[in-house]
Nucleic acid binder design. Structure first.
Lengths: 202, 202, 202, 202
DNA sequence: CATGAATGAGGGTTCATTCAT
DNA sequence: CATGAATGAACCCTCATTCAT
């Protein structure tokens, strides 16, 4: 609820796009293409064709291709943070909160809206310097959620290694699932969450 | 020594390039550029300029840009496997062997010859289908080294989770170090190896 | 009139280009350049410069250089067949019909739209295999017009030699006029037609 | 004999190459490649590979690619003229001489040494201006052989049309046989000669 | 807002030719 | 004479972006 307010505020501020709007549809298609083909291999024409418009029309919605990438990434991060905030509120204790974060990040990579977040991870270096600078504070805010939970666990001597290192190791392990994990495979999402949690917790 | 024999055989077979030769120098520069700028953002002219030749001359050494990428990857994998074989011979017990593998893979990403192996991980999807097919059996051989060691550890109930899952989680965690770990920072390479080992071993 | 209908249908079907349209102008310039310099010696920039656009713009109209060659050839063949059909309708008897065909083919090589047809003859081998396959049935249809008229003449014992041989000899003799015949020279087009007709008819 | 003297003189003068010599072998391979693939589509490397040397070595034999083309053409013309001179000496009367010329030209296009002469006809425009100028007088001498025979036939009212026109029509018909005539097909070479002769003679 | 022709810089690649060995 | 790495200009084609309609 608070969450939705935040998201809606962002939509009203023009930061995020309404999923029903032309811009929102464009972003969804762009995210999927960026994920599957990579940012550089996706042409503006590809996106336009997926949306059902012509290439020139793209630029009525976004200033340039870089702006599309940035918007996709913002969508991904905002959405993921929204889930994390909500999940943390319901979680109990450091271990429960860590489990919540792992579950959220795993879902943000592999779930129904995983396109945007995988793009954040895998196409980051293709975002222009200016775009990276604009998003960086948001990513730090995102990381801070993790760090604070990890520190709580560390203080209670639950963690295998220091929070800053643990975060990076977990980040690598979790984002890489994008390349191999299939939710409908032998290993269920819940099992995967537990396995990752076991790595982190002693 | 057996190892060096393997590498030399490959050089003689024309699979790997002599680091002193024009081809070897070309490969080293290409690997560094591919790592830093990405494969697609690196132009053939960039590589030629780095080597100190003109763009047309590139194609005397490699048929096309894709062949350069493939050669870089082969260098990376062969070199890494060489290190792993040697380290495994000297390691004692499942835990010692696992530590050896982690150390090797970490070094292959961050060590003095890390360019090639990071390219294998990060630019894989830009290798042509044919190129991927050619390398795939080698990658599987590489993975088999890991799996057999992990299975030994699993049988002795040392492992936190099943070998196939553990391998993928470790792979993500280790390869991601490329993005944040600096050997000359606060955390030493030896410490990082131990932290990762602790994740895997119960 | 029936003729014009055919041509217009083809234009509407997108097979032939409207001479006034950008594509039509492009084709006319390309045909002239291909005739004068040869297909391989004509660069895409040459064509663009002749049309008055930049090289990149060429590819908004045709997928690649090969497609331009194919389109030029289609124009040539369709135009020539149109003239032949119309002329045959008005011609009387085998000899009259043969004269009509000779006149048409001569005009298609040397007349105001001769660029396209000379390209068909002289640049055929530079058309891609796929392009040749696409056009082949049309060329066979074209040849069939000749063969049927020659067979009529042969049955009436007017012909110097069997139709299939006669056709090839005439084809060589007529298409070669492109290299030496000038309509404004001493020898008029009408005289040339008669001379060729005399070769064929006993 | 006189003929061979001429050819040998030319070889000694360095104008023609000894067929056994490296230059001669190079020319034979070049001629075949030029015929089959066209001059522009044949690379210097193609020729070198066919001969069994490396591309750089080509230029020890000929100054540049254009010089190879010129040499191939000279071979073709000299060889053809040699045949014509010999055949004319043995032929009786205008009709016999005309038949001899047709037979020679047909053989020069389709016979065992047809590569060189088809190159003269089909690749002429790719020879540099300087090269064309150098060969032109020889080609005129060649044509003069035809014209003088045709004029004799014309004076005896044997010819269907004036010599200059007849020559060009025959030239087109004969050279085109390269594209369709196969000596081992239904139509024998002797029959084809007769059919062509019938066209010319009333 | 949508269109789609045009832009123009830049990409990978080819190839005749040179030249030190 | 042969080699083969190097040259460098030119080629076809791509693509993000602009803009008149």
């Amino acid at each position: 609820m608070l969450l939705q307010t935040v998201e809606q505020q962002l939509i009203e501020q023009g930061i995020l796009a309404d999923p029903q709007s032309p811009r929102g549809r464009l972003l969804a298609h762009a995210a999927k293409l960026f994920r599957n083909k990579g940012y550089q291999s996706t042409t503006v024409r590809d996106i336009a064709a997926a949306v059902g418009i012509l290439s020139g029309s793209i630029f009525h919605h976004y200033k340039n291709k870089d702006a599309i990438l940035k918007a996709v990434m913002l969508e991904g991060i905002y959405h993921s943070m929204g889930q994390m905030h909500a999940a943390l509120e319901q979680a109990q204790g450091p271990k429960g909160k860590l489990r919540a974060l792992i579950a959220c990040e795993l879902d943000s990579m592999n779930g129904s809206r995983g396109d945007a977040m995988t793009v954040v991870v895998n196409e980051w270096r293709f975002l222009s310097d200016g775009g990276q600078a604009d998003i960086l504070s948001l990513r730090e805010e995102y990381e801070q959620l993790w760090i604070s939970v990890l520190e709580q666990a560390f203080e209670q001597e639950l963690l295998q290694c220091p929070p800053s290192v643990m975060r990076k190791l977990l980040y690598g392990a979790i984002t890489w699932t994008d390349k191999w994990f299939r939710p409908d495979g032998e290993l269920s999402e819940a099992q995967l969450i537990d396995e990752i949690l076991k790595l982190a917790i002693r």
